[in-house]
Amino acid sequence: MPPLTGPKSGDALFGSVERVNAELFTLTYGAIVRQLLTDLEEVEEVNKQLDQMGYNIGTRLVDEFLAKSNVSRCVDFKETADVIAKLGFKMFLGVTATVTNWDAEGTSCSFVLEDNPLVDFVELPDTCQGLQYCNVLSGVIRGALEMVSMKTEVTWVRDMLRGDDAYEMRVKLTKQVPEEYPYKDDD
């Protein structure tokens, strides 16, 4: 049996999905964050809420990614990270990330984003310095990876909104959960 078509390239993938105007997207996201700040008042709470929203997005988005990209199972976490950086970010945000700073065990790495469509027109006021403006992205990655049986912790290391030179997200694989038989023997 000949193998079916392999994974699509990032550009082909980006071309195949529905897109919205980038500014509309950026401004909508900005409006959401703004509204959360008004509703929840605490910056910490907003960070948490953004992460939770991202997680919920990620758990659904992973299926769309898998269905459209033709990616099959990844052998290890390194491959997974590459796929996210080259295909995942490209498909949903139109940018690619670089994967760097692997630790010795190959369980944690950094995604570096030079360009981030979420933060155009954004400035953090003094009162919101603790805000992780892009926390939704880390939530998405955490949610999506959990659906493919990888428990991860995602933290922001560098943030351009706080004067760093790029966006850097640290992803740490904490556990790979084996597939388990969901039913009990006696029911």
């Binding site: 990844c74 052998v75 290890d76 493919v148 049986s149 790979q176 084996p178 597939e179 388990e180 038989y181």
Partner: peptide, 11 residues
């Protein structure tokens, strides 16, 4: 009988 990790084994 030992559960497979994701990405492990053929399908």
């Amino acid at each position: 009988g030992v559960p497979l990790l994701p990405g492990q084994g053929c399908s």
